[in-house]
Design a protein around this nucleic acid. Sequence first.
DNA 1: ATATTGCATGCTTAC
DNA 2: TAAGCATGCAATATG
Length: 581
Amino acid sequence: DVRSWDRCHRFCWCLAGTLFPLTSTVLERTAFVGYVGICTLGLSAYANSIFCEKFHRLQTGWRECGSCKKSIHCGCIVSRCLFEYDDFGGIECATCVNTSQLGLMRNTENSNAIGSSTKDNTNDRHIENIDGSMVDRAGKGKMVQLCGIAEARESSRWPQSEKNVTDSCIGPNMQEDTRFSNMMKPPSHSLAFTTPENNGPTGVTRSMNKSQPVNISLGGNSVLTSALESLEERLEGKALSLSMKLETIQAVIPPQERIARPPPNGRGKSLSISRYWPKMTDHEMEQLSERMKCTVVPLFEKTLSVSDAGRIGRLVLPKSCAETFFPPIEESEGLPLQMLDVMGNEWTFQFRFWPNNNSRMYVLEGITTCMQVLQLKAGDTVIFSQMDNSGSKYAFGYRRASGSIDMQEIHLFAATAKLRSGSNYLLNWKGKGEPFLNGCSEHLRWGIACLQTENCKMLNSDLLQRPISVSEGMTQTSGPMKSLLQNGDAMELSVTIKQAQNLLTPPPRVKPNIVKVEDQEFEEYEEPPVIGQRTEINVHPSGSASEEMSPKKLENIPATSTKFIRKRRTMRKPGTSQVHG
DNA sequence: ATATTGCATGCTTAC
DNA sequence: TAAGCATGCAATATG
């Protein structure tokens, strides 16, 4: 339907302009798949194989490259980067165009036309936000070098006013708006909706391209084009597994093109290492932007090494990222960078480098206090972002290392809790003081509310990064759990898992079944435990340490069981240990 | 004695 | 194979 169409194109545009971080969430929501015209909305369209058939394949689409005779789909915006219009009618695939243009590029490689795209943004690299969109200032007027040859080419052809409209309409906001709809009505010469009857000003297209060899780097686009064509071949007539989608897109759109920030002064390498790509969901981005009260553009992320997180207080920055996103520095001493963390604290780090093997090694110094305050550890990931307001230029967030609970787990837990109990059990936090745990349906409501409402603004905080996981609390015995909840007012919960376990009690007035597993007796309950009353669960009367339930013992519990079990409280011989319920 | 700084070394990984 | 980067380590600073 038209809605799908617009959405599809909206995200195509977003992807094409790298105005939007390419995240799995985006992919899952929009299910935009490659550039072959397979677009799905909420996966359903793709799953039903309706999108392409409906909008692309049999309508205006397939034409032949004038050079190699390859079939190229020309019916939609997503295929724009796959071909060029020929001066004398017909089309030419991007590969052939590139081949011919590379020669031109070589002849003009010192020209300003090319240099402008690779160097001019050295001192003008701010990301500008217009109505939620993220646009590289350097790209304005020259258009960011992103997804496609056609994107940049076409942009370069557009009148400035049209480009501005486009810029202002592209953004992460997924809601439909009239401006977007208007934007999606392409200019008459746009490739996006061209039909065989409406080929656009082909003469203009090609002649301009030949006289002005485009202000983008063709090398990357050649690769891109090849990837697209390869992708097209792969996808033609068959489904693409969901797991492939993200990888495919990421392979197709190199990060440096998503960001469109070549290293200043020609130093360094392009940012081609995917592990530094900021991996934030759009939701996280929205949250971050909300909290920062401005649009935040993720630049890169770095997983903290032992050295980074150590007491030495310096964080090694990926060279390509440092050179691409941070201000150029000539002296080893570098310069101070002011950054805001997600709590709004302002930090000043020294951004500098060391000479290293005729190269440079970039570091952020003076991070010790910050690391301590935020309790960042090796394995955690710091995400550096750029803020669009002029005051504090950079911001950084962080993501805890694996082992922490995430949104999915919370959802899963909430759903499980709901399934397992007519009434729901979750932590119920009230007031600023010591939280008390209470078994009631508010728990689930709180959890869901926390996920979906204002309370969710602190999702990046330690509470949800390292909260007490109920399953964790029931199976582990040691290690302090310290969660910092900041929901308006800071509230710190510091309990051990054992203490948490002590807050569990079986449902009242319920008689458990006694199950024996390897000579251990367990109480089996149909209902989940009540949280909030102290019990002696898991604590041996003698005070001996608990032991974890062995995998073997767990195996004996039916996997499909939705019952709740705990070790039966019986007196044991000294020296023997108990297992967890 | 301990902390900090600046560079070197060697492993890992992208090309 | 070379660049990147995690980390080691010696030199220097500080308490």
